[in-house]
């Protein structure tokens, strides 16, 4: 079921066309990544989806409810984690949550629940200003989860955090998606988009320039996964054996090395390794190269994701 549908979103700030004709949809349980460099228009797009800003043109529907800056019903369905930490530093973590729970009419029990979810239960009584950067980020995320939204919108939720908090947040997002929440996740970290998102929209200068799964995007560019092997034994025979595996589309040998073009390197690698060892050849090293979204972005825009 479609939870979010945006069509033709446009927003201008003075001379800057921040968002230009952006349309996409997100279904239940799907994690959609909006990937683009700083200034691409991610936050502006999200602001229109969350009813913070009015679009100049276009429409946002959340579970069929039209969103606008006055749309109380639609706003109830959306959980929002702003890019900038949006916390009250002089309130404790728990008080921050209680306040927003009361605004959303979420039951008090949800406060303790989300504290557990983001791993802040033992520090809930401390003032938010005393939290580490990572803890603040996790509290920022927790607030968005309080009212069990149908759609969770996270605007660069991991900006500048320690790896532990980053992993915690990403695990949280995965678990929520598994429970059926629709998730819109913006980032300029390519790895996050790849690890987390079912589908990715690439945005640059306000325009959505490509959309699809990582594989779809990569293949559209004619890029394939590669596996490079260094072997001890009969390389030629190994090449013949490997060429017969379904996912392997090309094999090239140079010296003791083999270069394979494959469909899905991670899935194919075990098959490759077991086929070779069954043949009595020893693998000295194996390397996987997956063309990533960074490559896609570079192809599409001629510039790197992060300058």
């Amino acid at each position: 079921m479609t939870v979010l549908s945006c069509s033709g979103l446009r927003r201008r700030f003075g001379d800057v066309l921040a968002v230009d004709d952006v349309s996409f949809t997100i279904t239940e349980g799907e994690t959609y990544g909006l990937l683009g460099p700083n200034g691409a228009g991610k936050t502006t797009t999200i602001s229109m989806i969350t009813g913070v800003l009015s679009p100049d043109a276009g429409e946002v529907l959340v579970a069929g409810e039209p969103m606008s800056i006055h749309a109380i019903a639609a706003k109830r369905l959306v959980g929002y984690v702003p890019q900038e930490l949006a916390l009250y530093p002089d309130l404790t973590g728990r008080e921050n949550l209680r306040f927003f729970a009361s605004l959303y009419g979420a039951p008090k029990s949800r406060v303790d629940h989300v504290l557990d979810v983001v791993g802040l239960a033992d520090r809930a009584g401390d003032l938010a200003r005393e939290y580490s950067g990572g803890m603040k980020r996790r509290l920022n995320v927790a607030i968005g989860l309080l009212h069990e939204p149908r759609l969770l919108v996270l605007d660069e939720p991991t900006a500048g955090v320690d790896p532990q908090s980053r992993n915690q947040i990403m695990d949280n997002v995965r678990a929520l998606a598994a429970d059926g929440m629709a998730i819109l996740y913006t980032t300029h970290y390519m790895e996050e988009a790849e690890r987390l998102c079912d589908r990715v929209g690439v945005i640059d200068s306000g325009r959505l320039i490509a959309e699809g799964t990582r594989r779809e995007l990569v293949e559209r560019l004619g890029e394939r996964d590669r596996i490079s092997l260094l072997l001890d034994g009969d390389v030629t025979h190994a090449a013949a054996v490997l060429g017969s595996i379904r996912n392997v589309h090309g094999v090239a040998a140079h010296g003791q090395g083999l270069e394979l073009v494959v469909d899905d390197a991670r899935e194919t690698l075990p098959q490759v390794l077991s086929a070779i060892s069954a043949d009595g050849v020893v693998v000295r090293s194996a390397e996987v190269t997956e063309p990533n979204l960074e490559t896609v972005f570079l192809h599409l825009t001629g510039k790197a994701l992060r300058e």
Binding site: S47, T50, G51, V52, I69, I72, A73, K75, R76, V78, Y80, P82, E84, L85, A86, L87, Y88, P89, F100, L103, Y104, G105, I143
Partner: peptide, 12 residues
């Protein structure tokens, strides 16, 4: 503080 964005996104 950035909390204004949260208040604006809340059903308020």
């Amino acid at each position: 503080l950035g909390t204004m964005a949260r208040l604006l996104a809340a059903p308020v």
